[in-house]
Design a binder for these strands. Structure first.
Lengths: 298, 298
DNA sequence: AGCATGAACTTTATCCATAAAAAACAACTT
DNA sequence: AAGTTGTTTTTTATGGATAAAGTTCATGCT
């Protein structure tokens, strides 16, 4: 059966809005809620119905008002707000990065399905999606081959990344003066400087900034294939670092400084300087990844 | 039910080998056949069993020998040797390129499933696989968006293609003298010259050469992401030209000449010359694609 | 006319079932 | 010991079913 994670997530959102006073007095109309939550009206209605049933809100001649206060255990547990497909992704990445899955291992859909507690279909869809990351390969009628999260992989990944980013950074720096992206870049620079001040405690926030920064650079002259490639990068880094936390603070601080230099270079509009800062940053990112790959292998 | 296309294709292969005398006297063992056909022994046995049943071969104390001659209607029809997934691919590409499918159209899995006569699962798997080509986009819980086989698409595609191919061609030309790829390149050049002589009648053969040529260039310094991207190119071109045959002979002849120049440049090891020939060829390929895109829109 | 709710209908996400194909095991032959 | 064939077990490719979520149609209220 299809999971009701969409409903549960929406329910939690509305509940937390009620809780911290974002919804005072009469509740908005179903249509308005639908717009705000990004779900269908059908789902909104289901949420409202449950809110009434639990006496969190009351409905009197077509008007809905908050009734009792939201309680900690009104919320659905987080795990129930994540669709199966996402769970499969997480479990697979854990299996791949943490288990002792060696390059050359073959992947068995049925076995994974049993292990993850889902139907084979879900596994297969995930693997098809995942195959574009270049880490697995399909052999028809037979199964999938895990090629390994290896040094080669990282080298090939970064070779492309450098090409793309040099190209995008260059084009970014050549934008007209009046492009709104310059403003966005300036704002991002401030965010970087701010984070640097608080790096001791907030170093986790770097990952978000990193993403924003690299995506901003691509915005100057969009190319769907570059965007797609950046999805691979984000994905890999997201999971990789989730299981490899050594030196995180130190690493992020260094990267933050490199970004600032890189931003300065962009703002200078000087092509040579841009290329240099870009290369320096990526070389260091690559070195970091390589170091932790080696750690993985031991 | 799973199709038995693997068996039928294998059967046809064995039958045609019997037919044109590639299998004389005693047939090879099951294991040997399995190796030659690239299928499992289970399938080989099924084929043999059917060959016996139809009296195409006879089995006497463990020895199998051809019996009656293979007849034209011993073969299974082609359509039955293609797996469902491939049919879905073909039908989808036809729907996309030939129908009046406009950019922005939304794609309905259920409707396509009905239209193509397959289960929704098959459609969904195809769409997931296909999404990496950048022509469709998934909107969760809602469906897929067809972004259009547009001019933008072609421009973005070629931007990347030029980057990749300049890089690969350069690296190819810098290979050591004793690399076996130089021999392969020389052979390919001969194939080009040969085809040029017979271009009037054999111009369809160009497509195969084109593929071999571009893949050879990537072989000098492999990168899985570049390979993957080349899959996109091949796929797109395969289907696009399948429904767009105008000027085919003329186009292929021109491309053949460009390839020859390009090969000469590679053999010269002169970087500037290589880059120039590479750019020239890709510019012309792009122009061709663009021209037919415009034709599509009318 | 334009927005709100109610109800009916359609599509997606997910699980389950099964024949075909592959792989593993077993017994036999040279 | 290595290669054959026979048999059993496992896995993949494909179809089908259904609750949840999305969409459309209908009705009623300012």
């Amino acid at each position: 059966m299809r999971t009701d994670t969409v409903y549960k997530k929406a329910f939690n959102r509305v509940a937390s809005m009620l809780h911290d006073g974002q919804l005072v007095g009469e509740l908005p109309s179903e249509n308005e809620l639908k717009r705000r939550m990004g779900v269908s009206r059908t789902t909104v209605r289901k949420v409202l119905q449950e809110l009434v049933r639990r006496k969190l809100i009351a409905e009197r001649n077509g008007i809905r008002i908050a009734e009792r206060a939201v309680d900690e255990n009104d919320y659905y547990p987080d795990a129930e707000t994540t669709p199966r497909a996402k769970h499969v992704e997480q479990q697979f990445m854990e299996w791949m990065l943490r288990g002792d899955t060696r390059p050359g291992t073959s992947i068995n859909e049925l076995e994974l399905a049993r292990q993850f507690g889902v139907a084979t279909n879900g596994i297969r869809e995930f693997l098809i999606r995942f195959s574009r990351f270049g880490l697995i390969e399909k052999r028809p009628n037979t199964g999938w081959l895990f090629k390994g999260f290896t040094e080669d992989f990282a080298l090939e990944l970064f070779e492309i990344r450098v090409m793309f980013e040099l190209r995008s950074a260059h084009l970014f720096s050549q934008q007209p003066e009046n492009s709104p992206l310059w403003t966005k870049l300036a704002a991002l620079k401030i965010a970087h400087v701010d984070l640097l001040k608080r790096i001791e405690s907030r170093f986790h926030d770097f990952s978000g900034l990193d993403n924003r920064f690299h995506r901003l650079i691509n915005e100057a002259s969009p190319n769907r294939f570059i965007d797609g490639f950046y999805d691979i990068i984000s994905f890999i880094f997201h999971y990789h670092y989730q299981w490899n936390k050594q030196d995180e603070k130190q690493r992020n601080k260094a990267a933050l400084l490199e970004h600032i230099t890189y931003i300065d270079a962009l703002e200078s509009r000087n092509p040579a300087w841009v290329a240099k800062a870009c290369r320096a940053h990526l070389a260091s990112a690559r070195a970091t990844l390589m170091r932790s790959l080696i750690a993985l292998e031991e």
